[in-house]
Every structure is written in structure tokens, then in C-alpha cells.
């Protein structure tokens, strides 16, 4: 069913997704969106891992994806907790306003 698709296409697809995520991190000011873009990057990695896993006919790639998911969930939980705390204090999540630490 997957015959006829070169791994190259998957590589390309995940790279493009990864880069889109990276651009998002750079181009947006909204902390939550930045965070979401990071999730997008992780998903690009997941896709890549799964495709490689299929390529090698080896389950470990897919298992690795589970760990990435677990970590992503943990990171998001912590991250959003921190974000909402910031929002409580600053009433904004604009990254440009978060510059109290510059001398």
C-alpha cells in the first residue's frame, strides 16, 4: 500500500513541516503560538521516525514516537502552567513584553 513512495518524500515533508514550525517560532510573538509551533516541529520528527521505522521495518522508531508524545504532553502541561502564571502577573503573553531581564 505504501509501495512506490520514496523515503525521500517523507524526509522532504517532515523537513518542510519542521522548518515551518521553526519559522513560526521566529515569526510570532504570541507565546502560545510559539509553543504550538514547537509541537509542530516535534510532529515533523514523529512523522520522520515513523517513516524510517517503516523503511527499516523496525518497531523501535514507532516506540520512540510514544516517548516523544509523552514528553510533549509533559512539556505542554508545564509550559501552559507557566504561561498562565505569566498571564496572571502580566496580563499578556506577548514575548516582546517579556523583556524584564535585559539590562
Amino acid at each position: 500500500m505504501i509501495n512506490g513512495i520514496s523515503i525521500n518524500y517523507y524526509l522532504l515533508l517532515s523537513t518542510v513541516l519542521f522548518i515551518i514550525g521553526a519559522i513560526g517560532v521566529m515569526a510570532r510573538r504570541n507565546s502560545i503560538i510559539i509553543f504550538m509551533c514547537i509541537e509542530l516541529m516535534l510532529n515533523a520528527v514523529n512523522l520522520l521516525l515513523v517513516s524510517f521505522s517503516t523503511l527499516h521495518n523496525d518497531s523501535s522508531g514507532q516506540v520512540f514516537v510514544f516517548f516523544i508524545m509523552a514528553v510533549a504532553a509533559a512539556e505542554v502541561a508545564v509550559g501552559l502552567a507557566i504561561l498562565s502564571m505569566i498571564y496572571r502577573n502580566v496580563k499578556s503573553i506577548d514575548t516582546d513584553l517579556l523583556s524584564n531581564l535585559k539590562n
Binding site: F52, F64, I82
Partner: peptide, 27 residues
């Protein structure tokens, strides 16, 4: 708060790169 947040974002970004690297090496 800001420190925690920056650390988090940068940490996750680094994780992203790390994972992409791992994925390619695995590939």
C-alpha cells in the same frame, strides 16, 4: 516567570532539534 518560560521555550526548541537529529541518525 520569564526565566522559566524562556528556559522552557529554548529547551523545547533544542529538544526539537535533538529529536530531528536522532530521527535522521535512526533513519
Amino acid at each position: 516567570n520569564e526565566a522559566g518560560f524562556k528556559y522552557l521555550i529554548m529547551g523545547s526548541l533544542a529538544s526539537g532539534f535533538l529529536l530531528f537529529g536522532i530521527a535522521l541518525i535512526y533513519g
